[in-house]
Design a protein around this nucleic acid. Structure first.
Lengths: 166, 166
DNA sequence: TATTGTTATACTCTATAACTATA
DNA sequence: TATAGTTATAGAGTATAACAATA
């Protein structure tokens, strides 16, 4: 959420030269994502839900019995990060660790009843947020944008060259 | 850059249900931006340049005499963040604070000779990174994607509703 | 030996608030 | 009084590394 001194939203400032920044896909992506992330936080503040927490709830909801290590892998974070994430969702009363029957080292994750119930409203709020922001574009544009982002993020990219300063 | 245990890149895991996450613009944006940010860091590692540092160098280069407070506003960060950013660029020998003639409280920022020189190579590396990643899409798709992102991020969004848990 | 979850620790990036010197 | 830059401090979020229990 915007705060007193610093707006996380990178508003365009008139009279300032942006130069080649305006030609970069990465800069456009960064501006958009930063602003949308901020709107997500503001929209979900009543539930204490952040984007990673929401993703974790959805994954556990649709893939019950998920282990911490699997969740970490799916979300692209370290296991220690998954521990903290699950701790937070447990503290919110949304998730629990249960002993895994087949592996006494591991825990199976599942949503609590409260978690499953609240996830309905949370999901609706997330969808409303996403639709409200997307509403700036028409339906065809929204579909096009999602398709292009999906194509870009799922593609194999050539590795960065090993070059550097002379 | 990918590390031993945790890939920051959120790779899609087969056999996992993603549910409505795959319908969200925000999720697609997050996945793409995270991966591209990581590629930027890897590509610019030889110079110690991160996306915010690059932006700051470009802004100061094109808008010489910029004050710290202005830089903070342009970049959407707090003044204390701008201090740290400029400190880092000063430590790299790329930027200096100069007394502002018209206001003895303020500093004018400018690039050092080294900063201006290296910015040429750095800019080329950034453009190469951006083009390499964008190369997954054809030229028309790249243009379309940038246009849609620009339209989305520059638009005025309706504010989040004040609703919450019952 | 390898893996699971955990803890300890640290680093980055961001923020707020209080301070100082000017305006 | 208000503003520019600074400093102190803290809170997310991320990481690595080492550990105990179990495979």
């Amino acid at each position: 959420m915007p705060t007193s001194e610093a707006d996380t939203f990178i508003a365009r400032v008139s009279g300032i030269q942006y130069g080649m920044l305006d030609t970069l896909l990465g800069y456009a992506l960064r501006r958009t994502q930063l602003r949308m992330y901020e709107d997500f936080i503001a929209s979900l503040a009543p539930w204490g839900i952040t984007p990673p927490r929401f993703s974790a709830m959805v994954f556990v909801s649709l893939n019950p019995g998920l282990k911490l290590t699997q969740l970490a892998k799916i979300m692209g974070i370290a296991r220690s990060g998954a521990v903290i994430l699950v701790d937070a969702l447990e503290a919110l009363g949304y998730m629990v660790r249960e002993p895994a029957p087949e592996d006494r080292r591991a825990f199976s994750l599942r949503l609590t009843d409260k978690g499953a119930q609240d996830l309905v409203a949370i999901t609706a709020a997330v969808q409303a947020h996403d639709a409200r922001v997307s509403g700036t574009l028409n339906k065809a544009e929204q579909a096009k944008l999602k398709r292009l982002l999906g194509k870009l993020s799922d593609a194999t990219w050539p590795p960065p060259p090993k070059t550097g300063p002379v």
